[in-house]
Design a binder for these strands. Structure first.
Lengths: 235, 235
DNA sequence: TGGAAAGGTGCCAAAAAGTGGCACTATTAT
DNA sequence: ATAATAGTGCCACTTTTTGGCACCTTTCCA
């Protein structure tokens, strides 16, 4: 049994028994009193809230709300969660936004600084608008998640992105653009991009984009995108 | 330096240097080649994708997409994230739902089994309806997160919940009810509960509830709540 | 085809960390 | 006062980790 396993056993026992004594805990876990005391100190260092009362009739107990996860998420998964929480907050529909934010803040802090910077840049390109549910949602934005890596690379490295596009009239075309922002007008998602061949900004519904490909370094920089509610610099 | 610190240093070095050799890595981290090899094996066990090429000119590299967080979230924070993702998916507005789900699944698996069961029960009481944005959102559901613990205890233990309520006409009343479900009709949240003194189901807008208090064991069980789109058993 | 450069494995002794026991202090209820 | 409880410091003992070594496999290159 490793130290980690034993500390998990201590937490389990504390959760099961509620209020107990250290000697009982040591007997339950099968280690010495001294070791259990060391484990309790370690668990407190890890953020578990373990209350204790000295003196006759005393004992220790675990604050149940301090039980924690130990999951390790990939950066992509964190990004998906960030989008979810940011969108819900923008739509004003998340009663527990504070808690969700606290969780995400912890996750972000545990990422390497450069990855965190990337995430913030991606989020800086994400504009979430008000709810627009009058849009027909029958075949709405079922964007293929496998496209994400290509978009991510294009956004982060400011590379040109080329893809096939099917516009509202069903006309197919091939585009090569410089991605500037993601525009979320629930339930639809748009890619906002500068189209150098047309010398204009265009927006593309994400679910109408197929076969995206990242082409490499762009030569177009420092543009400004104006949304309905003001000016927002991107790039 | 603990093993964990050293393994973090290995990840950092791999991320910084891209493609490198084990000897260079050992020099960079300040440990022996043998130890670094053991660390790499441990990191692979933890899910990091570390590619290697044997032979002259070979080396090792880290798949950047496998960089992971090490955050530890409290159960409440996980619940807030679960609500956020579940709501977004119900509203059909989350292109990367698969990724968010994968992240949450990892988080759930890392929780103690009993906490995970609690979370699933809480989510089983959560009904998320279609978007209803025509509702006046000027002073909508800014539910106080500090109420969550009381609701949580009441839901999980099937206890009676008493609170002050201000109805749509501004009439104040004190209620004692058995909570059955949470109904989310964005942007409003409702508590669906059996009111024993009125012998009827009632719903309460969460932001109009104040001073909730958990009273203890209930005597009312096994009810059925019928929503517009069908029947859903709770409790 | 052989040698050099790379990753990978098994083994062992030394070093480090963890563990258990003991004596001790502080606090509290009876 | 006494008993029961949490908590600390110390020391010997035990377990794990670490570093070094020999050796294997793979790959490139002369």
């Amino acid at each position: 049994m490793t130290a980690r396993d034993r500390q998990d056993a201590v937490i389990r026992s504390l959760r099961r028994n509620g209020f107990t004594t250290i000697d009982a805990l040591a007997c339950d876990v099968g280690s010495s009193r001294r070791t259990i005391l060391r484990d309790i100190a370690a668990l407190r260092d890890q953020g578990f809230v373990i209350e204790s009362e000295a003196g006759r009739g005393g004992g220790i107990s675990l604050d149940p709300s301090s039980v924690q996860t130990t999951a390790r998420l990939t950066v992509k998964e964190v990004f998906a969660l960030l989008i979810s929480v940011a969108s819900m907050r923008a739509a004003g529909q998340l009663p527990f936004a504070g808690l969700a934010d606290a969780g995400l803040a912890k996750i972000e802090q545990s990422l390497p600084p450069d990855k965190m910077r990337d995430l913030r840049r991606m989020l800086g390109c994400l504009y979430v608008g008000p709810l627009a549910p009058q849009v027909d949602t029958s075949n709405m934005g079922n964007m293929d998640p496998s496209l994400l890596p290509t978009f991510e690379v294009a956004f982060l490295n400011k590379h040109l992105l080329s893809f096939d596009y099917c516009d509202a009239k069903g006309v197919q075309s091939h585009r090569t653009v410089e991605p500037q922002a993601m525009l979320v007008l629930p339930p639809l998602w748009y890619l906002v991009a500068w189209d150098p061949t047309r010398a204009a900004f265009r927006h593309f519904r994400m679910d109408r984009i197929s076969s995206p490909e990242c082409l490499g370094q762009t030569r177009f920089r420092k543009r400004t995108v104006t949304f309905e509610d003001g000016v927002r610099r991107v790039g």
